[in-house]
C-alpha cells in the first residue's frame, strides 16, 4: 500500500476541514449528537416508557429501550458522518474543479478513500465520544460492556461504513447528486436497519432487504457488545455475515467507481 497518498489525503482533508469549517462546525456536529440523544430520550419518555411489549425484550435481549435507542442513534450518527465525507469526496473534487488534476495522477484510489475515511473517523470519533458523555445522564448504561467485542465491532463498523460509502459515492458521481441519494439512503437505513426498533418488526420482504445492508449487523453487534456484554465467539455468525456483506459492498464500490469516474469525466466534456 502507498502510504504517501493516504498521508497526503489525510493532511489535505484535515487542513481543508479546519480552514473551511472552524470551531462552529465541530460545535454544530456535537449539537446534532445532542439533539439525536434528546430525540431518542423524548421518544422513550413520551411514547414507549411503561408501554413496551414483551416481544421487544424477547427479540433484543434487553428491556432497556432507552439504552437500545441511544446506542442505535449514536451508531447511525457515526454512519452518517463517515459516509458523507467518503462518498462525497470525488463529487466534491468535481465541484471544486480538482477532479481532472486528481484523475491525471497515477495513484490507486483505495489510499485516497482511506485517507478521507480516516479523517472522518478521527473527527466523528471525537464528536460521538462527546455525545456518549452527554448520553450518560440520559440513562445509557455500559455496565455489561464487553470491551474486546465492542472494539472489534467498531472495526467491522468502519469497514462496513467504508463499503457503503463507496457504493453511495458511485451513485453520487454518476448522478452528480448528493442530497437526494444520501438522504434517501440514510432515511432507508434509519427505518429498516434496526436503529430505533428491532428489524424483526418489519414485514418479511423489508427484513430481507435489511439483512443485505451491513448496518443491520453492525448495530446488532455494537448493541450486543455494549448492552448485553456478548463476547466475540458468541456472535460469530453475525460477525461473518456482516464482514461478508461489507466486502461485497467494498468490491462493488471499487469496481463501479472506475466506471463512474469515466462517466463523470465524459459528462464534464460532453
Amino acid at each position: 500500500m502507498d502510504f504517501k497518498v493516504l498521508r497526503g489525503t489525510l493532511k489535505k482533508e484535515l487542513l481543508t476541514k479546519y480552514r473551511a469549517y472552524p470551531m462552529d462546525f465541530f460545535i454544530g456536529n456535537v449539537l446534532t449528537g445532542f439533539y439525536t440523544i434528546l430525540g431518542a430520550y423524548m421518544m422513550y419518555k413520551l411514547l414507549f416508557e411503561r408501554n413496551m411489549n414483551s416481544s421487544f425484550a424477547n427479540l433484543t435481549g434487553t428491556s432497556d429501550y432507552l439504552s437500545y435507542v441511544l446506542v442505535g442513534s449514536l451508531t447511525y450518527l457515526f454512519l452518517v458522518r463517515t459516509c458523507l465525507n467518503v462518498s462525497r469526496s470525488l463529487i466534491t473534487e468535481l465541484r471544486e474543479g480538482t477532479l481532472e488534476s486528481l484523475m491525471l495522477a497515477p495513484f490507486r484510489r483505495v489510499e485516497y478513500f482511506l485517507g478521507n475515511m480516516l479523517v472522518q473517523t478521527l473527527t466523528t470519533t471525537m464528536e460521538v465520544m462527546i455525545s456518549v458523555l452527554v448520553a450518560i445522564p440520559f440513562g445509557i448504561s455500559f455496565q455489561y460492556i464487553h470491551i474486546g467485542s465492542f472494539l472489534l465491532a467498531i472495526v467491522v463498523a468502519l469497514y462496513s461504513f467504508f463499503g457503503i460509502s463507496m457504493v453511495l459515492g458511485c451513485v453520487m458521481l454518476f448522478t452528480r447528486d448528493t442530497y437526494i441519494s444520501q438522504n434517501t439512503l440514510f432515511a432507508f437505513v434509519f427505518l429498516v436497519c434496526g436503529i430505533t426498533f428491532p428489524s424483526e418488526y418489519l414485514p418479511a420482504w423489508l427484513r430481507t432487504i435489511a439483512d443485505f445492508i451491513p448496518i443491520t449487523g453492525v448495530v446488532t453487534l455494537i448493541r450486543n457488545s455494549v448492552l448485553l456484554g456478548k463476547g466475540i465467539s458468541e456472535q460469530s455468525t453475525i460477525w461473518i455475515n456482516t464482514l461478508l456483506i461489507s466486502t461485497v459492498y467494498v468490491l462493488i464500490g471499487f469496481i463501479l467507481m472506475q466506471k463512474c469516474e469515466e462517466v463523470a469525466l465524459e459528462k464534464i466534456h460532453s
Partner: peptide, 21 residues
C-alpha cells in the same frame, strides 16, 4: 481550476507531489 483553494501554494504542491509519488 486544478488547485485546492483552501490550501496554501506550498501545501498544494506538496499534496500533488504525494499523489505523483
Amino acid at each position: 481550476r486544478m488547485i485546492y483553494w483552501r490550501l496554501t501554494a506550498y501545501e498544494n504542491l506538496w499534496y500533488y507531489g504525494q499523489i505523483y509519488n
